Amino acid sequence: MKLSNAICAAASTATAVLPSCVWAQAPSNAERYGYGPHMMWGGGWYGMIFGPLVMILVLAVIIALAVLLVRWLGGPWPGSAWHQAAPAHTPLDILRERFARGEIDKQEFEERRRVLGE
Rank of each mutant, 00 (worst) to 15 (best):
Y33K: 01
A11P: 00
W72V: 12
V54F: 15
T90I: 07
L3F: 14
G74A: 10
A60V: 15
E108V: 13
F109D: 00
G42Q: 11
A10I: 12
V67E: 10
T15V: 09
L92V: 14
L3C: 01
D93M: 04
A86E: 15
D105E: 12
L73Y: 05
L69E: 10
A16F: 05
N5A: 06
L73K: 13
G47Q: 11
Y35E: 09
Q107C: 13
R113Y: 02
V67H: 06
I62S: 13
P27C: 01
M48D: 12
E108G: 02
W82E: 10
V58C: 07
A86H: 07
L68T: 14
V70P: 01
A88L: 02
G47S: 05
P76I: 01
C8T: 14
A86S: 15
F99I: 02
M55P: 00
F109C: 01
R98C: 03
V115W: 05
S28D: 14
M55H: 03
K2N: 14
R71T: 00
R98S: 06
H38A: 11
G79R: 08
A30P: 01
G43V: 11
Q25C: 07
I49M: 09
N5Y: 14
T90F: 02
C8F: 14
L57R: 03
E118S: 08
P76M: 03
W72S: 15
